[in-house]
Design a protein around this nucleic acid. Sequence first.
DNA 1: GGCACAATGTACGCTAGCGTACCGACTACG
DNA 2: CGTAGTCGGTACGCTAGCGTACATTGTGCC
Lengths: 230, 230
Amino acid sequence: MLLAALPAADYERVRPQLEPVALDLGRAIYESGGQQVYVYFPITSIISLLYVMLDGSSAEIAVVGNEGLVGISLFMGGETTPSRAVVQSAGNCYRLRSSVLKAEFVKGGEMQHLLLRYTQALITQIAQTAVCNRHHSVEQQLCRWLLLSLDRLSSNKISMTQELIANMLGVRREGVTEAAGRLHAAGLIEYSRGTITVTDRPRLEAKVCECYAVVKREYDRLLPSVAATA
Amino acid sequence: MLLAALPAADYERVRPQLEPVALDLGRAIYESGGQQVYVYFPITSIISLLYVMLDGSSAEIAVVGNEGLVGISLFMGGETTPSRAVVQSAGNCYRLRSSVLKAEFVKGGEMQHLLLRYTQALITQIAQTAVCNRHHSVEQQLCRWLLLSLDRLSSNKISMTQELIANMLGVRREGVTEAAGRLHAAGLIEYSRGTITVTDRPRLEAKVCECYAVVKREYDRLLPSVAATA
DNA sequence: GGCACAATGTACGCTAGCGTACCGACTACG
DNA sequence: CGTAGTCGGTACGCTAGCGTACATTGTGCC
C-alpha cells in the first residue's frame, strides 16, 4: 500500500483513519466531475481510470493498484476530474476521508513528496497510454494491459471478460478475442469465460511494446519503496 | 504568463529571477531523462511535450503555452521525465532556475497551489490526448491541435510545416496534407508552405471532437485567472 | 435436466490510415 | 537568375481494425 512507504511517524498518524472497504467488480467509485468524499488506496483491488465519451464509448487512461491511490485531484487542487474510476478487479482497499488526506498534504513533508511522486508516475502512465494508442496494435496493447494489471495483483490470473477488457482499451470485443486467441496459440496465456491466466510471463514481456517498460521503469524509479513491497 | 496569476507578493519574490529567453523553432529544451536546470514559462512561444519511440517515431503528449510551464517534474519530485520538450512555435519565454522554483514550491502557499492546479490541467490534456488518439480521425485531431495551438497564441496564424504537425500528431505527413486539404476546401483554413491560418474559427470548433472542449473547460476551471489573461 | 443468458468464436465487407513512390511548386541562396 | 532543396499534392496497393451479424459454448439457476 502506498502509504506504507512513509516513515512510521507519518504513517501512524493517518493509519487510524483508514477504513478497509471491499470493492466489487464494476463499481464506479468516482464519476466524471463528481464530488470526492474519499480517496481510495487499493490493496488487492485494481481501479481503472477511464474517460467515457458522449457517445458512450470509453478509453482507459490509467490503472491504479496497491502502488497508488485514486483521487489525486483532491490534493492537486481541482477537487474533481473529467474521468470515471471503475473497479477492474474486485478486492479490498483502504479509504480515507478527503479532508484528512488534504490536511496531511498541506503539511508538506514526506507525505506530500510521496503523493506527488506517485502523481508523476501516474502522469507517465497516462502519457504512455496516449503514445501506445497512437502507434501500437491491439495485440501489443493487450500485452501491455495484461502486464500492468499483473503487476498490480499478486496472482497471474485476471478475472475479467474480454468484453470489459475491450471497453478498457477502447477497442472492439472481437479485436480482443482475436488478439487473445493469438497469444493463446503462442502459448503465452490461457483463458476461459471471464478469467485470463498468464502462463509465460517472460515471453509476454518479450512481445509487449516499449510502453510497458517505460511506465514500469518510472514507477520503480519514483516509488522504489512501494515497488519493493508489491 | 502563469506566475502573473499569483498574488503580487508572491510574484514579486520570483520576478527578479526570471530571465527572458528567445526560443527558436525546433529547439529541444528538455531531452528525455535529462537534467533540468531551468523551468520555462512560455510567453509568446509554444512548447510541445512529446515522446520519441525507439524507432524514432513520435507522439505529442501535450502542448504548453503562456498558460503553463515546462518542467513540472521538478516540483513533482521526479527531477526528470521520459519525454522531450520541443519548441513548436518560436517566441520568447521566461526561464527560472530549477532550484528557485523548487524552493518556492516547498514553501506551500499560493505558488504551490497554482503549480499543482496547472499540473492537474496538464494531466487532463494528456489523458484527453490518449482518448483522442484512440477514437478520433486524423482530421479531428488536426482540428484539436490547431485550436489548442491557437489558444496559446495571440494570432490566428501558426508557423509550422505539415511535416512537423504530422510528427506531433504521430501520423503520416500525407494524412495531414489530406486533412488540411479538406479543411481548406470547407473554407475553414488557409495555408501555404509552413504557415496555417485559421479563417473560420467558429466552424472549426463545430468540427472538432469533444476532446478539445473537455481540455479547455478544465483549463478554464482550474486556472481562471490565467485563462483571463490569455 | 434444461433453459436462459452471458461469454466467446467466426465471418465478411468496409474504411482509415499506412508505406511507398513520385511529381510539382515555391524559396532561398549562391 | 538558375539551381538545390524544402514543402506540399497525388496516387496506389495493403492491412488493421471497425461495424455488423450470427453461431457456439459455458454457467448458473429454476
